[in-house]
Design a binder for these strands. Structure first.
Lengths: 148, 148
DNA sequence: CCAAATGTAACCATGTCAGTTACATCAGAG
DNA sequence: CTCTGATGTAACTGACATGGTTACATTTGG
């Protein structure tokens, strides 16, 4: 399967918070974020909770003006930070049930694949590490309206 | 989520076929493959069917000695070939429902993410392209018994 | 105290994955 | 020509993940 759209939503959230809360001390409620992402506020709050545990956003509870803002500057959050917060599982799955250990292939393949899979996942993460939320925000506003 | 374990099974199959059918003209039945992978033959045949459509394996139907073998030499099948055969979906999912087009972020983020996601997926595939089934087979038999 | 939020549980619909059973089909061996 | 060992594929299932929805207790500024 693919990497969950929750990751895309997380990046959308952080980009939006970067746009609105950077340079001031405002907080954005989950309803408003949900309206931009076009989904429901509960899902947004679930993602925000995960991002908060990772130290990427901070929350203000209670009263008018409650909501969320970035906990760091957008230039100090890489897409890999967000990936690590949202995605816990390794990119490639091994066998569901361990292969037959009485077969040469069954005995050695998981170990061999582990290395290859790690290299491949690392290469993907290396790309994500080179982009920050600030970069994404800049690119996003630059493309207002374009389709590709 | 993660890349389906079906991909791991496909690599297991091809490695096993490389071991058994390279240098002779034998065919391996799905039952025997299933015994090595430790799963059921129907699942194996489903994966083999996909690999056959991609031109990676060939099948001999009917009679004794029916089964499967590699359609190319193991050194001429990269892990990226297998990936392309098995995985059709892009690595990263975008939003399930299109974001709010009246918001600056909602308007531009999909386009911005598309580029980043493509770069990242390409980096992963570049690693897979550097390994062949022959490499995997060599590594696998070299590690008989080791756990990591 | 009121109002506007968060935090979270509970439930649901949907979809994917892989396991299983079943059976029609194929083709070599005798 | 039949027997036999296999493929090809449909159909059903259980398990699980995902995200949508409702509901409500909790928090806190005004």
């Amino acid at each position: 399967m693919a990497i969950v759209s929750r990751y895309t939503v997380a990046l959308h959230i952080l980009t939006l918070l970067g746009l609105i809360t950077e340079g001031n001390d405002t907080f954005v409620p989950s309803d408003r974020i949900a309206a931009s992402v076009n989904t429901n506020p509960v899902f947004i709050r679930r993602v925000l909770g995960t991002l908060r545990k990772a130290g990427l956003v901070s929350v203000q509870r209670g009263g008018t003006g409650a909501g969320w803002r970035l906990a760091r500057h957008p230039g100090e959050i890489t897409l890999l930070d967000v990936y690590r917060a949202i995605v816990q599982t390794p990119l490639f799955e091994l066998h569901h049930s361990t292969p037959n250990q009485r077969c040469v292939i069954g005995r050695g393949i998981q170990s061999a694949l582990k290395d290859i899979y790690e290299n491949s996942e690392t290469a993907m993460k290396r790309e994500l590490a080179q982009v920050t939320v600030a970069d994404l925000l800049r690119e996003t506003v630059a493309r207002k309206g374009r389709n590709s």
